[in-house]
C-alpha cells in the first residue's frame, strides 16, 4: 500500500483546504486584533498614521507565502489570500469591502509568483524576499488606483516604503514563521513535512 494513492489527484486534499481556511482565520483574527489597537493610534498620529500603515503593510501578505510553503501546490497562495479576505469581509467586516478580495488576489499572485518560478521546490531567504516585494508591488498598483494616489506628493515614497515592508514583514517574516512551525512538527502532515528528507514509502519500524 503506497501513501501516494490519491495524493496526485488534481484537486487539493480536504486537509489542505481546511488548512488554508484556518490560516485565513488565524491571520484574519490577528489582523483584526491588530486593527483594533491600530485605529486609535492612527487617528492620534494624523497624517503620519497613514504612512505608518504603509510601514506595516507587509504583515498583510503573510497568509500566501505560509500557505505556499506548507502545501506546495499551484494557486495555493492566491486561494489562501482570497480566503483570508473573505473571512475579513464577510465574517469580520472591513472598511474596504469586497474590493479587498481583488486586492487579496493580486497580493496572492504577487506573493506566489517567485515560488511558482521555482516550481515550488525552493524556499530560500531570497525567494521569500522576492515574494514579499512582488506581493506588495502588485497590491500597490491596485491601492493607488482605489485611493487615487496618482499625482500626490508621496507616490514614490509610498511605493518604496510598501515594497520594503513587503520584503521584511511579508517575506522574511514569513520564512521565520514557517521555519518555526516546521520545527514544532505541526505541519509534518503536509507537503512541507514530506519534503523534509523523509523518503516516502520506506520508514523503518522502531522497536522499543
Amino acid at each position: 500500500m503506497s501513501t501516494e494513492l490519491g495524493r496526485r489527484a488534481p484537486r487539493l486534499a480536504l486537509k489542505d483546504v481546511v488548512l488554508m481556511v484556518t490560516l485565513g482565520v488565524v491571520f484574519g483574527f490577528l489582523y483584526w486584533v491588530f486593527v483594533q489597537a491600530w485605529n486609535g493610534l492612527a487617528v492620534l498620529m494624523g497624517p503620519a498614521g497613514d504612512l505608518a500603515q504603509h510601514v506595516l503593510l507587509g504583515a498583510w501578505l503573510l497568509a500566501a507565502p505560509v500557505a505556499v510553503a506548507v502545501i506546495r501546490r499551484p494557486l495555493v497562495g492566491v486561494i489562501a489570500e482570497v480566503i483570508a479576505a473573505v473571512v475579513e469581509v464577510f465574517f469580520l467586516g472591513s472598511p474596504v469591502g469586497p474590493l479587498l478580495l481583488v486586492a487579496a488576489a493580486l497580493q496572492g499572485i504577487g506573493s506566489e509568483l517567485p515560488f511558482a518560478l521555482g516550481r515550488y521546490r525552493h524556499f530560500g531567504w531570497a525567494r521569500y524576499a522576492a515574494s514579499g516585494a512582488a506581493g506588495a508591488a502588485l497590491v500597490f498598483v491596485f491601492t493607488a488606483f482605489r485611493d487615487a494616489w496618482w499625482g500626490t506628493d508621496l507616490l514614490t515614497v509610498r511605493l518604496l516604503v510598501q515594497v520594503a515592508s513587503g520584503v521584511v514583514l511579508g517575506g522574511l517574516l514569513a520564512k521565520v514563521l514557517v521555519d518555526a512551525l516546521a520545527r514544532t512538527g505541526a505541519v509534518d502532515g503536509f507537503a512541507i513535512g514530506r519534503a523534509q528528507g523523509v523518503i516516502p514509502g520506506r520508514y523503518e519500524r522502531r522497536v522499543r
Partner: peptide, 26 residues
C-alpha cells in the same frame, strides 16, 4: 490512515465488503 494522515501501510482491511485502501474516507 493512509488517505488523510501519512504513513506507510501494509496488509489489507475491508469494512462491509469494501476495500478501505481503495475507498476514500468520505
Amino acid at each position: 490512515i493512509p488517505h488523510t494522515i501519512d504513513a506507510q501501510v501494509t496488509g489489507a482491511v475491508r469494512v462491509a465488503g469494501r476495500d478501505v485502501h481503495r475507498t476514500p474516507v468520505a
